[in-house]
Design a protein around this nucleic acid. Sequence first.
DNA 1: ATGAAAGCGCTAACAA
DNA 2: TTGTTAGCGCTTTCAT
Lengths: 360, 360
Amino acid sequence: MCFVPDVLPLIPALKLKKTRTNSTLSDVAKAAGVSPSTASRALNGLAQKYRISESTERLVKQSAAQLGFRPSQVARSLRLQRSGLLGIVVPDLSNPFFSAIAREVTVAAGAEGFSAILADSDGSVEKERKLIEQLQARNVESLVVCPIGLEFDHLEEASQRGLPLVTVDRCQASSSLVQVTSDHLTGAKLAIELLIEQGHRRIGVLQGLEGTLPCELRLQGVREACDAAGIAFNPKWIAGDQFSEQSGYRSARKLLTESPDLTALFAMSTPNAFGAFRAANELGLSIPHDLSLLCFDDVAFVEFMQVPFTTIAQDVPELGRRAATLVTEHMQTGKSPRKKMHKIPVKLVPRASVGKVPSA
Amino acid sequence: MCFVPDVLPLIPALKLKKTRTNSTLSDVAKAAGVSPSTASRALNGLAQKYRISESTERLVKQSAAQLGFRPSQVARSLRLQRSGLLGIVVPDLSNPFFSAIAREVTVAAGAEGFSAILADSDGSVEKERKLIEQLQARNVESLVVCPIGLEFDHLEEASQRGLPLVTVDRCQASSSLVQVTSDHLTGAKLAIELLIEQGHRRIGVLQGLEGTLPCELRLQGVREACDAAGIAFNPKWIAGDQFSEQSGYRSARKLLTESPDLTALFAMSTPNAFGAFRAANELGLSIPHDLSLLCFDDVAFVEFMQVPFTTIAQDVPELGRRAATLVTEHMQTGKSPRKKMHKIPVKLVPRASVGKVPSA
DNA sequence: ATGAAAGCGCTAACAA
DNA sequence: TTGTTAGCGCTTTCAT
């Protein structure tokens, strides 16, 4: 069990600042010469229900406007036991993939009257745990998390407690969690099928964080596609350990050096592909002439690239939107969605980085 | 004055869900056989100060752990009159420039014990106003906003109320607001000086949202650099109305068509430059051979571009960090920073998109 | 048609 | 060394 002061190194208590700057409901009530309850009802559109006289209602609203009254959500939350807050946790907000998801969720949540607390786990499970704790302490009503993807106990636990929670992208195979992720298996198959169709037989794979579902499923897709085509796939052609540019670079260099007969590379992320591109350049291999390159994730502004990448494009906005819909529905209906695993279709976008196999 | 139900279409009151899932402080106190105050003190590390016996302290902490106690920040906020919340407003979270800023602020705030509520104004002043209202209603303790940049009254007002607030990027010339922005004037001068040095005399400018300070300062920089070099600058060479790709495309087409003798284009944003690049392509102009192109804002993965852009690079992380520092200091010291305008240096990054003037 | 009062969960005077 | 009490600002039951 976590420990309290640990969880929230919350701000030093400070001296209570007595500087009330906002007027309160009772100020409004006083100004209007009514009781706080009446003021509350008038301002919350319950005038009808409580048969508050029109004049009173107007009076209250006027006073509120005059005083610049802005109801305290904190007090409201405490009373109502609803914070109107939703938490988002991503591993890296500066990654366009995650910021796009964050954006969709934020906007969708806003449309339902929720505000989003955004947290960046910086790729660390430890931070992720802490953040999830913090967000729960802040009484978020639901959580959208793009997990690091290797440990899920803390997420399961939160979900078990009844907190509406959905994971996006790096999901888990066997889990009762509600999950939204792309159809990685099909995506990888499409990729490999294209390469095979172009005559490639020896295909290297630049993988991302090993053990994560996207990574595993894509590997499986690669194997299945090869099997289906009766092509032998050599496990030695797999390298890499992160979805990062560096990992792509290092593993591409490794593969291209150790197995110079590879004619194509399948990268699991755009950064991986960028790294591979750099490595290929350094090794004097031109794309797609000497080497074909294909990656998961689409990329913006391809048309300005030296060699536009052929990609398996994920529907990123849809990932975000779906996640938002799922949590809001959970909150509204009070029960967890039936369907746990939501697979979002991907599509192959052919561009210049894939060509026929050199010697063919 | 804004109106209440308008401001926060807060969640339908719902029936109070009685499903207490978290144990409360008094549960802990009861379990430990002490009073809530003692429990509170023990858990908040005030045992020393209040000379609480070690055994009691341990007992309380144990009970808390056993019950999985997680203190309600909502209640705490209400009592302490501090929410531990900071608001961030950006015009477009899917724009890497803004998501980078959001990230820096989030992280920096987190380090100080604050959580960040993120809001996306979607380029609309109206939404920006609403969001600022909402955030204030949520009792955020401070606000970092990347404004649309044409209207500031709502920001001024919030700031006047004593809310620590800093604006980033699209600032305002005459304003008491605390502002963090790049050194646009110098940046534009550097850009134009480079072009002039390369022999360019007729330089088109693709501007962003007119009336915003970055836009105006950059125009001024252009003029000053031309003046200094004794070169006539023709206002007809200015076009554009947004920091978007579309605006860049349209205005580049316009300029290149109406003034075919232009030999260089200075774009005010990366998207503007992308648009210009597309337009140039369509018009059969090759860069930098027929036309030089230079833009504000650096861009990721330039090395993979057909023609890597020469840019005036902003120090985006620093913009975010500085903003975060300023608001946290304001909160801690209780007084607004002395220095209002914070100019962050930029630097010229020469790459392939700028060349000598064709005929020279 | 309106008010009084209780209480959401917590902290901090003030008492003991 | 610990407990009692009041109250942060709001909503809502119950009373009138």
